[in-house]
Structures are given as structure tokens and as C-alpha cells.
Design a protein around this nucleic acid. Sequence first.
RNA 1: GGGCGCAUAGCUCAGUGGUAGAGCACUCGCCUUACAAGCGAGGGGUCACAGGUUCGAACCCUGUUGCGCCCACCA
Length: 866
Amino acid sequence: MPSPPSGEVDLPTQYAPADVEGKLYERWVAAGLFAADPGADPARPAYAIVIPPPNVTGSLHMGHALDHSIQDVLIRRRRMQGYEALWVPGMDHAGIATQNVVERELAKEGLSRHDLGRTDFVERVWQWKAESGGRILGQMRRLGDSVDWSREAFTMDDDRARAVRTIFKRLFDDGLIYRAERIINWCPRCLTALSDIEVVHDEREGELVSLRYGSGDDSIVVATTRAETMLGDTAIAVHPEDDRYRHLVGREIELPLTGRRIPVVADDHVDPEFGTGAVKVTPAHDPNDFEIGRRHALPTLTIMDERGVITAAGPFEGLDRFEARPAVVAALREEGRIVKEVRPYEHAVGHCQRCSTVVEPRVSLQWFVKVGPLAKAAGDAVRDGRVQIHPPEMAARYFAWVDNMHDWCISRQLWWGHRIPVWYGPDGETRCVGPGEEPPAGWTQDTDVLDTWFSSALWPFSTLGWPDDTPELRRFYPTAVLVTGYDILFFWVARMMMFGLYAMDGVEPFKVIALHGMVRDQYGKKMSKSFGNVIDPLDWIDRYGADATRFTLLRGANPGSDVPVAEEWAQGSRNFCNKLWNATRFALMNGAHTRGDLPAELSAADAWVLSRLQRVITEVDERLESFEFGRACEILYHFAWDEVCDWYVELSKVQLAGDRADATRRVLGEVLDKLLRLLHPVVPFVTEELWTSLTGAESIMVAPWPAAEDARLDPGAETLVGSLQNLVTEVRRFRSDQGLKPGQRVAAALSFGGSPLAAHEEAIRSLLRLTLPDESFAATAALPVEGVTVELDTAGAIDVAAERKRLEKDLAAARKEIDQAERKLGNADFMAKAPEAVVAKNRDRLAQARADVELLETRLAALPAG
RNA sequence: GGGCGCAUAGCUCAGUGGUAGAGCACUCGCCUUACAAGCGAGGGGUCACAGGUUCGAACCCUGUUGCGCCCACCA
């Protein structure tokens, strides 16, 4: 075979990501390589992922970069495997979050949303969305996301709005959506209802105030952390079996400060063991009390407005709830003997997820989804294995949630969102108006909007054209895998399950839920602005490249685990990309190629590297199939760097200088070809650039995913190269100990004594810079290793002290080996019960260590004195 | 209050019964013609603690301690 021209390669010595990333991305888009076709050959399996739509607020952070990198790996690999692979991009309108952001913008101009009015305000949010959304799309391109841009979706666009209207109507007609006056979580700052999961609890230091209601034998002591709510008390509850209070049940007791008398009721809910066993009941301002109130037909007395300001007539009227709290306690103190005790008390307080304001339970008229049957189905789909959760431990959380879910409050008193499709008639009639239907003239629409997660819950099918029966829906639903952080398992994943199963007649929205963790800093701390440890993915992309950013994230990404990252690690990833660059550069400079079959005759080095390649392919496949991206990256990193670059490339230099040059060019091409393909999903840009140079083909994106060939496994070659590595390392160690410069040529005589390494003398001499002995050769040291004796002429006396130290250390280690092995082999129980392989291993170990000791003792004895 | 998880090298983490590993950091020596974003050679861990099972435990069991996370309508 004629040698291809070499030395004509013009690649810089350092990889510059900025020079290739933008260019390659545009080329991929222009070539339509990201697009998926529902009409493609039906023999090709379909594989779809819908992106967790980022909020249009703000920009992509490291968490998104991780989430997107994982999805891109999955999609790119499946594409290479021949699947019709679809990755749907899009964004979420993020109702309350976005409204808050735009309101803050307005506040800078001294305006509130009420100054603009609903229509203009919503218009303003759309403007903001166009701007912010564009930024996010740009970031996705920088990351290299191979999404099908022709299918970009937004949770508030017309198609998604139709899906929302459709499912709302169906749920409404099925009696699964209802409107009711209930006590809900209310944010006094956002002025809207919140669902349970939009309330975050954290432990706060507060005060537990004990109050004596009534007097004398008719008095009863209750405790509260929210003293101001006593203004709204309408009962005192005790446990029915509690003898201490039995005589008071049914009687009325005077409520201080109010002049009202309130009944004592018996309710199972009260824990007689807790506190005094008596509870003040404020049905309007506490969820438990609301239930007690319903059971006993108690009045619901609202004493606070929507902003948390006291409305109860009297001295506290107009005070904020947090001002009223101490004021009420002070007033009760003045009454005398009412405040029995005030003590510090740590308890969980609910806060608004979006603005951290303390949430106030509030009775109001809201819309709810009756979750019972939906949550049951969502739980069953995971229980019966139709949907798998990775890692499986996370399933426990999922079940805990779907099995205990309360009805979902879906109405929000906001302006930005899908308006509730219910109209009210002049006669008080209510009608849900489906898509395409017109409300009767003169009717008015409900002013509330839907919880943002309502539309997100439809995402896996609304993005595929539902409610229409589209080719996309038929081909790509259910989607293959949902990739997201475990933090939104409840917010989003469980709700997609509920709505997906409901809307699609029992077909699950995805087969697998692959959860990843949060991106953290190098000390495992959560990234936060206040901590100052936030890293912007774009900053890393600018300085180290998208590939390095992705590799850093993916290297730490195993199922469910958090991903720590650090600047130094990104540099390491950048260095890795550069290593690939230079290895390929070396190969191209030496005429490596991928044309024709592999040579029939392989050198041991060739056979070894090809054998290792097959193992790597198999291992990487296994890891990627189980979402162990970090493990897959480690395998590829070590194979590429430690084996291909450090050994095969070095060994190939000898071969390229000899009569195996042509075969070596082909093997080098083969190894890099497959290695780059395996790496492409992880580091798409640098692999594309290098692979197209190496092969001359159009794009690595459409190259087939490598398949392991067992016929290429060669344990013999692996063993032989292993001993070659040991020999080389041992001699290098001697050289290093003796202070010989790495580049310094040293004369050596090699005695192989029948070792198969004899065939590799040239390579050994090359790797070790050993020259042939000439007539002046005088050995100053003899190193026996791997059955070969290397006699060196160091051109002067060797450092005996250094050598003795080294040999003594090795000798000690070998003796310890003997000790351990002898102890085991001399143990009757061990010999009787241990598997034969383990016993044999220890026998080998003992024999090896004994031989080593003998060698080392000989070498020590041979050392000149002093 | 309930549930889950973690504790291995300076840092972040692999390692689920058979001689303790990686990346980064550290030490020494090197511009050895792919790469100094590099090359070579090193140092560093009684695997949290205490028991138990086993011929053998970082790994399995029990307990202790210390962390982390999730859920929660005990005033």
C-alpha cells in the first residue's frame, strides 16, 4: 500500500475552541443534522427527549449546562446508533417568577403593574420574554445542544395554550377540577395563592406564648406561636378522651381582648400529650383549625387582609401581622394573668418559594385539581415498572409524594399565565369554555391564571402536537427519557406523570426518569450569589470551550449525585481536549488514515491497543446505558491519555520509523477514529473538527457508534505490553533515582533470556533512550526485571546510597508480601474455604515476591561498598 | 416528628468479600522533534468510632458519633 503524503498537516499546537465551535454549530444546523423526522424509515427506532424548559427569566446557569449536557450525550449517541432521535427545545413562561422580575423592572421606573393595567402589563412581559428568551437560546447554541430548532416551543404559545384549554376542559368535565373555598397558602407580598410545594419550610426561632383563656375552674391554657391570630379564635379544642377538660366541653369561655365567648369542642385531632392538651382554634388562619372548624360548624372569622394587615376592629386594626404579634401579647399582659409563659421556640415556618415572604394561611375561593385518581395512576406507573426512576433510591421520595398529595391549588392571582378558561354568567352560572368555543355574550372570564406547572405538566405531549393526533405524537410518544434535577421531581415530574397518563389514555410520558444532582463548588457547597461562588457557564465556554465545560460537568455526573466543579477542573478538561488535538495532530503528521481494512498482521502494540479499544467500547456502552456519565468519562479519559497517548503513540513512533509504517498509520487511524466517535457525545466540537480531518468525511454526527469486536480481544498482547510497561517503568525509575536526565542517552546491554520482549528491543531502547553498547561499554548497574536484564553504563559511578535506599525499600515491600501470602497459605481455614482462584493468586504472589527478594538481595550485594 | 443518604489521600469523589484507587493539589527531575494546556519519577490513607459475621471486611450486620438532603397542618 502506498504511503499517504505526510507532513502536510497544518494544525496549530494548541486547540482554540473559539475558532471552531461557532462554525461547527452553524454547519450542523444548516445541514439539518439536529432535525428529526416523524416520517423517517419506520424501521428506525425512535428516541425522544423533551427539554426541561428553562424559565424565560434570567439566563442559563451551571445546573442547566449539566442538564443539557446529559441530554445532548444521550441524543447524540442514539443518533449515531441509528435512532430517529428528537430533542425538543423550549422555554417555560414561569408565571410568578417572571411576573416578579418584570414587576421589579417596573419598580425601577417607579411603576407598579396596576399603573399599566392588565393588558399593558402582559404586553410588557411578552416584550421582556422576547429579549430574555433570545439570550437563553443563544446560550444553548454555545453549549452545543443538538436540539431540533424547528420544534421550539413555549409554554404560553398558541399550540400550548390550546393544549391547556383542552385538558382543563376534560378535567373539568370529568369532575377533576373544582372551585372551592378552602384554606390555602397565601403570599402576602405576591398576593396570590400558592400550592403546597411552592412553600418552603425552614426552622425559625420564634416564641411560644401560653395564654390562659377564661378564669378559675373554667380557665384553660393554650399556646401559640402566632399570638395575633387569637383575635380570630372561634373555639378551643381538646381531645374527647381528655379527663382534664371533660367538664368544659360544650361550655363557653371568654376570649380575652374581644369580649367574645367561644365554645370548647372535643376533636380527635388534638394531641393530649402535647403542651396543655388544649388548642386555640382559628379557622380562618390555620389549616388544622380550618378542618376543626368545619367539623364543628364553627364560624370562620377573618382578621387579616390579603397583605397580612389586621382588619379586626379594635386597637390592632391596621397593624401588620408582625407588628400585631407583640402588640397583642403586650395588651394581654396588661389584662393581667393571661400571659402565662413566653419562651423561645424553634419551629418550621413556611415561606414563599419566590420571594421568601412568610406565607399566611388564608381562606379563599380557588380552583383545585382533584388529584386522587391522577396521583394513584402516577404512582402505579412507577410501581409496576412501566416508568423507571434512576437512581432507584429516588423512587421512595416520589411515592411518598404521590401517595400523600393534597388537592392541587391551580389558581393564581397573577396576570402572567394561562387565564382560567371559565366564564361566569350574569345569573351566577359557571361554564368552562373549551378551545374553539365562544363564551356567551356578556359573560366574564375568571381573572385568575393557572399555576405555571399546569402547562409544564403537559410538555411531553403538548410539544408533540397534542391534542391533535400528529405524526410526531405517534412516533415519539412516549418519550424515551426525562432528564432533570431531583429538585423538581415533585414540581414537574410527578405532574407530567399525572397529566400524561390522563391525557394519553394511560400511556406514560416517558420510559425513564433520569435524575441528576445539583452543581456545587469544589467544596460541595451550593452555588449562590450571596456566597459568591457562582460560576457562569458562558465564562467557562469563553475561556476553556464548550467541550471542556461539558466534560467537567459530565465527569462528575452519576445518577442522582451532585456535581462539584472548580476552575482547575475545567482547566484539566481543556487540557484533555488539547491532548486529543495533539494526538490527532501527531497522527495526521505521520499519515494516519482510516481507509481500507486493518492490516492482517499486527504488532504486539497494535494488537494490544485494538484489544483495549474493544474493552473500552464495551465499558463505555454499559456506563452510558445506566446514566453513569462520570464513569464513562473516566474510562475514556484514561484510555485516551494513559494508554493511547502515553504508550501507543510512543510505541508507534518506533513502528513508523520501520517497515511497519503503513500498518501503523492504519491502526493509529483506527484507534483515533473509534475513540473520537466514543467521545463525540461528550465533547462534540473538538471531536468533529479532528474526526473530519482524519477521515475526510462529512460529519462525525452521522458516523455510526462503534461496536465492540470480540475477535479483536487479545489477552496475550495485553500481557506482553503489560510487562513491557513494567520493564520500561522500572528502568525509568532507576534513571530518575540516579539523576539521569530524561533525554540523556545511556548505553545499555539487554539480555532477554528467552523473554518475548526480545522482539521489542527497539521499542524498549527508544522509550528509554538506551544506546547500543560499544567497545568502551562498562556496566555500572544491572536491573533484572520481567525476565530481562538491563545492564547500564551510566558513564560514571552510580549513586550507591540512592540505589541502596531504593532497593531496601523494594525489599521491605517484597518481604511484607511474602509475609502476607505465607500467612494466608498457611491458614487451614483459608485453604479449605477460599476459592481456588484466590489461592492460586496468593501462590503466584508468594512465588513472585520470593523471586523479587532474591533478585533484590543479589542487587544489594552487588552494590559497591560505601 | 417521619423518610433517605453520606463518612475512604490536603480537596472532590470512585471502589459492595480476596494485596487501598482517580482527578486536582504536593515533591523531585525534564523545553526527550504531537502536546510545558506537556513528559518522566515520587510522597501521602490504622477506609469516622465500637462491636459482630467470615479463612478473609472499606465492602455484610448491629450500635455510636458527626454531617447532608427530602417530607411534615403538633398548637
